[in-house]
Design a binder for these strands. Structure first.
Lengths: 334, 334
DNA sequence: TGTTAGCACTCTGCCTTGTTGAGTGCTAAT
DNA sequence: ATTAGCACTCAACAAGGCAGAGTGCTAACA
C-alpha cells in the first residue's frame, strides 16, 4: 500500500462522490497530474481491487469505491471541512432562537439544508431519568393540574377533570407526600409497596393517585419525538432511481428505525457505511449518527445518504452542530 | 346528459382510479354489461369529451377523467363507503389511547394506513385563544416554573433560572396580580399600558415579567406542529414516476404548504381537485382537507393523492375520523 | 333516428439490432 | 518499473419494425 495507491483511491472516491459515475484510469490520468500514465494507474487500480477497496461494476467499466474503501477513507484519509463564517453564525442564531421551542425540528431542517441529505433528529427521555418534583394545583372549580418535573427543565403536565377537587391546601399537602416518596426515584423504583404506602397516605384522596402516577410515567417514558427533513433529496440520487427502493427507504425512515442503533457516547460522531448497517435497505446507504444531552433529555441525530455521501462535509456539519450547541448551552449557564 | 353518459363516466372514473390506464370503449363494453356496443359507447364518450368531462391523452388512446369529470363525480356521483367494524374499533382505540399524547401524529399514521395516501395533520393555536390562568411556582433554590393555561387543557410551561428567586408566597402574590390583569385576554389585549401597569404592580420583581410574558406569548402563538405520514405511497403511483416531480412534491409537503389554505368550518370535508389547487405541483394532485377543534386548539387534516385518488374511500375515512373523535370527546365530557 | 358492425388509420410500447465510446487486461517495447 | 498499443467487453443510445389497443367514420340495420 504505497503513497500512490492512496492518492489514486482518494481520487476515485472524490470523483465518485461528485459524479456517481465509475471512474476510469484515463479520467484520473487527465484530471490529476500524478505524473504517471493511465496504464500505470490501471495496474495500481487492479491492486486496489484485489485489496477490496474498489469494485468494478462490470468487466469493462471504471471503478467504484467499495464499503471497505469508504471505511478506509473515513478512518484515515478524510479532511475536516469547517463551516463558513456565515453558516456558523446562522447556525448559532437558530440554536438560540429555538433553544426552548422546536429545537429538534429546526436542527433537522438546518442539517438537511447544509448537507442536502435526509436528516432525522429524535429526542427521548434519558433511560435513567429521575423524578425531581411533583406539583398539584387547582385550575378552576372542576379541574386540577398535575405537574411533574423530571430532570432540570424537563416538565410534563396534565389537567385532570374532577367533580369535587380538593382545595389548594389539601393539594399542597398531597404534593408534599408525593415529593417525600418520589424524589430522585426512577420509573423502576415505583413498585407495589411504594404505591400501597402512597395509597394509604392519600387516604380519602386515593382516587387521585392513579392519574398522577400515569402522568409521572409519561414524564419518565421515552416518548421519542422524531423530526425528519430533506428526505426529498434521495430522489435526486441516481442510485435511488428505482421508486420501489426509495419507497422502502422512506418507509424505513418514517418508522424511525434509523436511530434505533443506540449511541452510548455523547459528542462522538459515528459512521456506518453500507453493509455495516443492519436494516436491509440501509445497506445501500451510509448513516452518520451523533447524540447530545439537552434539557435533561437525550437527542440523537442521524444523517442518511447513499454510501457515496460527502462524508467530510456531513461529519463537519455534525461536529459544528455539536460544538455550537455546546457553546450556546455553556454560555447560558453563566 | 342522459343516464347512460353518467354510467359510462362512472365506469371510466372507477376503472381509471384502479388502473391508472386510459379506458377504451371496448374495455367498458366488455367489463360492464350496459347492453350497448362499443361503438355506441364511443359516440357517448365523444360527447363526454366535448363536455370537458374526459380527456384523450393522444389521438388513439382511451379516455381519462378530467378535473371537471372528477368534480362532477365527487359532487354528485360518489358513494359513501363506511369503515369496517374492525377498522372503526381500531380507530376508536387509537383515539382513546392517544387522546392526550401524540394524537396528531397517530391520526396521520392511521389515515395514511387506511387510505394509502400521504397524510398531513397539523395542530395550531386558535387565533382567538385567550389566557385562562397563569401560575408561578418554585422548583428548587435556583429556579421557578412559569405555567400558562390558555384554553381548557392547553398548557404551556417554562422553567426560569434565577439567582435569588422569590419565595412561594411572593410568587403566589405575583400570580394573583397576573391573573387579575390577564384573565380572558388575547395576545392583542396585552398592550403597552397593560404592561406598564403590571411592571409597576410587580415592584421589585419587575424583572420577572418579561420572561413571563414571553411564555404567555408562546402559549398563545400558533406553533403549528405538523405530522406527516405515508409520503412513500407517492412513489408507487405511475403518474409520479418522474423523480423530479416527487421531489418537488415532497418538498412542498415538508414545507407544510398543503394546509395553508384555511378551512373555516369544523367538521366539513373539503376537496380540491388538480387545477383547483394553487400550488403548481399540487395541480396534479387532489387534496382532501378537514378540520376539528381539540384541546382548545385547531387541528387540520390533509390527505394528498393523485387526482385519480379514491375519493369515496378518502372522504369516508375523513368522516370516520371526525365522527369517532367527536364520539370519544363527548363521551368523555360526561 | 338511434344503434351497430366493419374498416382504415393512429399512436404507444416494446423488442431487436447496430453502433459508439469508455474502459479494461495483456503484451511487448522502453 | 513504466508505458504505448491492441484486442476485447460491455453499457448506453438510436433506429427500425412490429403488435396491440383504440379511435373516427361510413354504411347498414331495426
Amino acid at each position: 500500500m504505497n503513497d500512490r495507491k492512496i492518492k489514486i483511491l482518494e481520487a476515485i472516491i472524490n470523483d465518485y462522490i461528485r459524479t456517481a459515475e465509475p471512474i476510469g484510469s484515463r479520467t484520473i490520468a487527465k484530471r490529476y497530474n500524478f505524473g504517471i500514465s493511465s496504464a500505470t494507474i490501471r495496474n495500481e487500480m487492479s491492486d486496489l481491487e484485489d485489496m477490496g477497496l474498489i469494485i468494478q461494476p462490470h468487466t469493462s467499466s471504471g471503478r467504484v469505491p467499495s464499503d471497505l474503501g469508504y471505511r478506509l477513507y473515513v478512518d484515515s484519509l478524510m479532511h475536516h471541512r469547517p463551516l463558513t463564517e456565515d453558516e456558523t453564525i446562522s447556525l448559532q442564531r437558530m440554536i438560540m432562537k429555538h433553544l426552548d421551542r422546536d429545537l429538534m425540528r429546526e436542527i433537522a431542517k438546518k442539517i438537511a439544508y447544509l448537507t442536502q441529505y435526509a436528516t432525522i433528529v429524535s429526542e427521548s427521555a434519558e433511560p435513567h431519568a429521575v423524578i425531581k418534583y411533583v406539583q398539584l394545583m387547582p385550575i378552576d372549580d372542576h379541574s386540577i393540574l398535575i405537574i411533574v418535573v423530571t430532570e432540570i427543565k424537563s416538565v410534563k403536565n396534565k389537567p385532570l377533570n374532577l367533580d369535587d377537587p380538593p382545595d389548594y391546601d389539601t393539594l399542597a399537602q398531597l404534593a408534599r407526600l408525593l415529593n417525600a416518596a418520589l424524589h430522585n426515584k426512577t420509573i423502576k423504583d415505583i413498585d407495589k409497596p411504594l404505591i400501597s404506602a402512597l395509597l394509604a397516605a392519600f387516604g380519602p384522596h386515593a382516587h387521585l393517585l392513579i392519574p398522577i402516577l400515569g402522568v409521572i410515567e409519561q414524564a419518565l417514558q421515552a416518548d421519542n419525538q422524531t423530526y425528519t427533513s430533506g428526505v426529498n433529496n434521495f430522489l435526486a440520487f441516481p442510485e435511488f432511481a428505482d421508486p420501489a427502493k426509495v419507497q422502502s427507504l422512506l418507509r424505513t425512515i418514517e418508522e424511525g428505525k434509523i436511530l434505533s442503533a443506540h449511541l452510548d457516547e455523547y459528542g462522538k460522531v459515528q459512521i456506518t457505511i453500507g453493509r455495516e448497517n443492519e436494516t436491509p435497505i440501509l445497506q445501500e446507504c451510509s448513516v452518520v449518527r451523533t447524540a447530545f444531552p439537552i434539557h435533561g433529555k437525550r437527542a440523537t441525530i442521524g444523517i442518511i445518504g447513499p454510501t457515496r455521501m460527502d462524508y467530510s462535509q456531513v461529519v463537519s456539519v455534525a461536529h459544528a452542530v455539536l460544538t455550537n450547541l455546546n457553546a450556546v448551552l455553556t454560555a447560558l449557564k453563566k
